[in-house]
């Protein structure tokens, strides 16, 4: 009886290994879903590894400064995030806080674990000086646009995400640059733009948190091995960062590189329009610049004023072009950036 059972088990294992070998052989032509699963497995494994590396849990003292009243919290080092702090205080803070400010100098993601004793401020869109929150929001919009674009096209159309320039609210639109090799001369109709706008709203209604993970260059290259443009950018990004690490962001299953910070949740996106797609001419590669404009939830604008913003967002955004690796700005915008 035992032998029979063992035999059965061996057969099962054999069939399992054979099937997995078969899957490995077909690695060269991975489908979108396979790539996503591969990336997410790596991401999850690294997240778990970092969590297990913490070891003994230490306590830190977090001083909350702000509305409704100042509070002292005892939190867990490398585990608790500003979001958790808000959960311990008021539901109102949980709902409205988009970004945290540590010790009055460093802007911190809502879902990034705290690493030392600190003074915490929670920022939101209706603050008196919300410039940094707006910037993080604009960056998140670009990131979300990347997620939407990688899912919106049909299976037979390959779409390679390239990058997005530094977020600049004053330029009037957020941007994502992509390469679509199979569409040399695509001009989207109004309906197609509407589909993209609707996809953005659908994404925001999924209420996903924006996860942040700092990984080493090697792992980042492994995650983005199917995207040749990201592979080119990653070494440059790691050179620029202080700890030589790459910061990854994830919403749902979509992973992207960005310096951050981003707002804590995709549901902050209230009203959104993808206004234009511009073809960019460079080295016979089909670069497309997708542009849009959006407003966070809770900031309402009448339709006429919003249409003014939409019209402006149709014009080509003058932010850094995908093949320029330094941030190149329009002289007018540069002064605007300085005043933000």
């Amino acid at each position: 009886m035992k032998e029979r059972l063992l035999n059965c088990a061996f057969k099962f294992l054999n069939s399992y290994f054979n099937s997995s070998k078969f899957a490995c052989r077909s690695c060269s032509t991975k489908s979108k879903d396979d790539i996503l699963k591969y990336q997410n497995d790596l991401f999850n494994a690294e997240k778990l590894r970092q969590k297990e590396n913490i070891g003994r849990i230490e306590k830190i003292r977090v001083k909350y400064v702000g509305h409704p009243k100042n509070l002292d919290l005892i939190m867990n080092k490398y585990i608790s995030t500003p979001f958790n702090c808000a959960q311990h205080m008021y539901e109102m803070l949980v709902r409205r806080s988009a970004l945290a400010l540590i010790n009055g100098e460093k802007y911190w993601d809502m879902h990034r674990p705290l690493d030392a004793d600190c003074e915490l401020q929670l920022l939101h869109f209706q603050d008196e000086y919300p410039a940094q929150v707006n910037k993080a929001y604009w960056r998140t919009c670009s990131f979300m646009l990347g997620s939407v674009l990688s899912n919106a096209f049909k299976e037979n159309i390959e779409i390679i995400l390239h990058s997005f320039p530094k977020p600049n609210v004053r330029s009037g639109s957020f941007v994502y640059d992509v390469v679509i090799p199979s569409l040399p001369n695509w001009k989207p109709s109004i309906d197609e733009l509407r589909i993209l706008s609707a996809e953005m709203i659908k994404l925001s209604s999924q209420n996903l948190i924006v996860e942040r993970l700092s990984v080493n260059e090697e792992l980042a290259c492994k995650i983005f091995e199917s995207n040749k443009y990201k592979l080119e950018q990653i070494p440059a990004m790691s050179d620029q960062s202080l700890d030589k690490n790459i910061v990854l962001y994830r919403i749902g299953k979509h992973i992207d590189v960005s310096r951050g910070p981003m707002v804590g949740n995709v549901s902050f996106l209230g009203r959104c329009t993808i206004t234009a797609v511009h073809k960019l001419e460079h080295n016979s590669e089909n670069f497309y610049r997708f542009q849009g404009v959006s407003l966070p939830k809770g900031i309402l604008l009448n339709h006429f004023a919003y249409s003014v913003l939409e019209k402006r967002a149709e014009k080509l955004n003058v932010g850094r072009l995908p093949w320029q690796y330094d941030d190149v700005f329009h002289p007018e915008l540069q002064t605007a950036e300085a005043t933000i």
Binding site: E128, P130, N134, Y137, G172, L295, A305, L309
Partner: peptide, 22 residues
């Protein structure tokens, strides 16, 4: 209730200001 027209630093006011300048 929140009055969006009071603070010129809010995101929609910045966008509108830039549109006006342009």
């Amino acid at each position: 209730i929140f009055d969006g027209s009071r603070n010129k630093n809010l995101i929609h006011n910045i966008l509108l200001e830039e549109a006006y300048k342009e």
